[in-house]
Amino acid sequence: MGIVTRGFGGRRPDPGRPLPPGQFLTQDFPVLSAGPTPDVEVDRWELVVTTEHGHVRRWSWGELMATPAEDVVTDIHCVTRWSKHDTRWRGVSVDVLLGDVETTGEFVLVHSYGGYTTNLPLADLLDGQAWIAFEYEGEPLEPVHGGPARLLVPHLYFWKSAKWVRGFEIHDVDEPGFWETYGYHGYGDPWLEQRYA
């Protein structure tokens, strides 16, 4: 290896339990901003699910709030190498939101307010693996962290957990999202270290 900067990174906390390869534990919640933080008001917020046949199902903020929510405690792993243990969220399971949507499509392109997109298999949004999260550590989710609501898919690298989520487009084919277009992995399993395509 080349140059090592003595002492740099030396203050990292001990993870105590296994982390995905190449990850380091952090106590902070770093913000990764690829654009301005959109100002999304909840009375204009909606989540739009579009199927491969063009069928549309909309959820307003009021409807989301009227849907039973769950408390979720999970580890999160950012592709920029930080991981955070035992983060506490509250949100609505994506199973509930997609329960009555008729589709045979296998892939989802997630859209956000502000224009961000990310892709993942539909199966990874189901079976208790993903939520529309609107609380973090007992407080309403802050705009810089994706508030009013973000996708939470903690078993994949955190860029898949789109901030400011506004919709799911279900497709028969996998279409790359924003970072995936520029070389990041189409799936992004942290335990397999799928950072780049």
Binding site: G35, P36, T80, G115, W179, Y184, R195
Partner: peptide, 30 residues
């Protein structure tokens, strides 16, 4: 410009459109 550890994004100051994206990976820069 938005410089992040994933990559950098340059946006139009007038309309926010994404003008440039640069990603440095172990294999090279895109």
């Amino acid at each position: 410009a938005y410089v992040t550890a994933m990559g950098s994004v340059a946006r139009c100051v007038a309309c926010d459109a994404v003008l440039v994206v640069a990603v440095e990976q172990p294999g090279g820069t895109l």
